[in-house]
Design a protein around this nucleic acid. Structure first.
Length: 627
DNA sequence: TTGAAAGCCTACTCGTCGAT
DNA sequence: ATCGACGAGTAGGCTTTCAA
């Protein structure tokens, strides 16, 4: 394992291992999603604005008139930015119609800001079909979180957020450009300027004695550098960094390397730097998107049967390392012990115990079946030893490491624990670096609470405040809900002249008077139902069951008589009601339905009711066909 | 000098909640 | 039942530091 140190193009030190592949595989899997699909955002306001995304055409499809460009210049700019943007390996020109719709002040409380409409193109179908979110996720084998991030990035008009940034961040403790430049200049001054009799850009560089520039050891140069920094009140970089820059720089004995390096306070920053070719080389090693490795196969095929596990069963199996189905129906495979060499010089694996005894350690750990107990076990087996900082290398604030961790493994009960390397410890227990890191940080902070499994145990941001609930309760109590006035199911009902809508309107008026934000009518109804067990009458204008059945029968008869192309037209649901083929067909069969009603002396339902029943019936049939 | 590991970061996944 | 949101876990990359 040979470290391949480089000095970055920005003058920063970059470091990696030659055997570590660049993150090409994630790029592929990350980006080979959402081909052939579309997602629309609908803002939750009265006049919905639609953001429509398609990956097939390069033209802008305007569904709703955009706001005036002068008022919203970002509309044009954003369209230009996103147009033709590559989403990983797939060339996916994204169409965007966007105009920011002012959100009502009352809705600030509600964190749900958009409705998302999911489309997918089915085989042998020229148009996109709307599907539910769950089906969308299953069809593409991606998680809710991933989809959510992408759509939030799009909705926030941040196209950069679509790019894969894993491992691309700048570490917080990375050596600054200025420090690198100073070190480079220091090295140049010692190594070359004296030797060539040139003018030294850094005055008072230190006592070189009789030693010629080229014969100086790096350690001596570093001592001079430190003294030089101390005199100027600057914080020196560590010996390691100094050595690294020196090594990278002196290896380039080309003419360009002999040019005086850039010093932030001496030379213009635009001058060529000896450090400027690192990252370009690094980047060239990364395969070009779209030419990399083939897309890895998905672990699970769409439509796979979902196991019938309860939440607790799933949780126990997950914590036991057994196979289980996630809530989304994805099968998570059983955890297996893999007995491979840890790779460290002490050969922890295979030196300690036999393969069977190592496997036993793994099984004993997962036998706990309890996340917290496993964490406690890890905390017990790893010893934290405070780092004794060596004075000579002390680098004030830059020093961050506080503990050395000693990993022990209990091979057999009653036996003395055996010290192993970190890799072996993780492998023997089948846990990740991150999990152990969190546990040990919790131990270091003396926070036993942090050892508990807190996944999913948080209060949602949009949860109705207790204060609001109390306010609503007070409001409802003011109404004369008489327990004597009971309906058939022994529940108190509202007086004849009162309904929930009236109550909610009064509640909103009350909120305005009290200068507070009202909750949604849904929440109000929910509280009325759950806390007061109050009977809510069915709306008077509900379609009678007999009429509903007649409509259903008519739709079924029509769909049976339809040709394939007609059905294809009807399978696409578009929001433009006046011109799309589906709407024309619905109007056609509704006219037929009206004629039949007249023949039978029935009162026909309106086109809107008919369309609603039609859509629900058609979706039902479509789901049966696809499943 | 060099390999191991700490520390930090990002992407992704999963579970859970309240709202709809 | 479905959805959006979010906390937390997993996996893995990068730089820097430690220590043999």
């Amino acid at each position: 394992m040979v470290p391949t140190g480089q000095v970055g193009g920005s003058g920063m030190v970059t470091m990696g291992y030659a055997h570590h592949p660049q993150p090409t595989a994630p790029l592929q899997s990350y980006h080979a999603v959402f081909n052939n699909v579309g997602v629309a955002h609908v803002n939750q306001v009265q006049a919905p604005q639609v953001q429509y995304f398609s990956y097939e055409s390069s033209t802008v499809a305007v569904r709703t008139p955009p706001l005036h460009a002068s008022q919203h210049p970002q509309v044009t700019a954003q369209t230009a930015n996103i147009q033709g943007q590559r989403y990983g390996s797939c060339s996916l020109p994204v169409q965007v119609v966007t105009s920011s719709v002012p959100t009502k002040p009352l809705e600030e409380k509600n964190s749900k800001t958009v409705s998302r409409i999911y489309y997918v193109r089915l085989p042998n179908c020229s148009k996109q079909t709307r599907i539910c979110k769950t089906m969308f996720l299953r069809l593409h084998g991606v998680s809710n979180g991933r989809l959510d991030r992408i759509l939030q990035a799009v909705n926030c008009q941040m196209p950069d957020a679509l790019q894969d940034k894993r491992g691309q961040h700048t570490p917080s403790n990375k050596t600054s450009q200025e420090d690198c430049d100073l070190v480079t200049q220091h090295i140049w001054s010692l190594r070359y300027s004296r030797e060539e009799g040139g003018e030294n850009p850094i005055h008072n560089i230190g006592d070189l004695g009789e030693t010629a520039g080229k014969d100086l050891s790096v350690k001596k140069m570093y001592e001079m550098y430190k003294r030089w920094c101390e005199e100027r009140g600057k914080v020196p970089v560590s010996l390691w960094v100094y050595r690294h820059i020196e090594k990278s720089w002196t290896s380039k004995k080309s003419a360009s390397a002999r040019n005086p390096p850039v010093a932030v306070d001496v030379l213009p920053t635009s001058a060529p730097s000896a450090l400027n070719d690192g990252p370009e080389q690094t980047r060239e090693q990364v395969p070009v998107e779209g030419q990399g490795m083939p897309e890895p196969s998905r672990k699970k095929r769409s439509g796979e049967q979902v196991g019938s596990m309860t939440r607790l069963e799933r949780k126990f199996k997950r914590n036991s390392g057994a196979a289980y189905y996630t809530a989304a129906g994805k099968l998570k495979e059983e955890k297996h012990y893999v007995d491979k060499h840890c790779g460290c010089k002490y050969r922890c694996i295979p030196e300690i115990g036999s393969e069977d005894s190592r496997r036993q350690v793994f099984m004993n750990f997962w036998k706990f079946g309890n996340f917290t107990r496993q964490n406690e076990y890890i905390a017990q087996k790893v010893v934290l030893v405070p780092v004794m900082q060596r004075e000579r290398d002390k680098v004030a604030e830059k020093f961050t490491r506080t503990y050395t961790r000693i990993y022990n493994v209990q091979m057999k009960p009653g036996e003395k624990p055996v010290r192993v390397c970190k890799t072996a410890f993780l492998q023997l227990h089948g846990v990740s670096n991150g999990r152990v890191d969190r546990v040990l940080q919790a131990v270091a902070c003396e926070s036993p609470f942090a050892l508990k499994d807190r996944r999913g145990n948080h209060s949602p941001k949009n949860k109705t405040k207790q204060e609001d609930v109390d306010y609503i309760c007070q409001h409802i109590k003011a109404f004369p809900i008489d327990p004597q006035n009971e309906e058939a199911n022994n529940r108190p009902a509202l007086p004849q002249d009162l309904n929930v809508e009236k109550m909610y309107r009064m509640y909103k008026q009350q909120c305005v008077q009290d200068n507070r934000a009202p909750v949604s009518s849904f929440v109000y109804r929910k509280i009325l139902k759950e806390r007061f067990n109050c009977f809510i009458k069915s709306p008077a204008n509900k379609t009678p069951e007999d009429d509903f059945q007649f409509v259903c029968h008519h739709i079924e008869t029509c769909s049976r008589n339809m040709t394939g192309s007609d059905a294809g037209e009807l399978s696409t649901k578009q929001s433009d009601k006046n011109s799309n083929p589906q709407e024309i067909s619905v109007r056609k069969i509704h006219s037929d339905y009206v004629l039949r009603c007249n023949e039978e002396g029935r009162k026909p339902v309106g086109i809107d009711v008919y369309r609603k029943i039609f859509n629900s019936k058609f979706q039902e049939q479509h789901d049966i066909r696809t499943s």
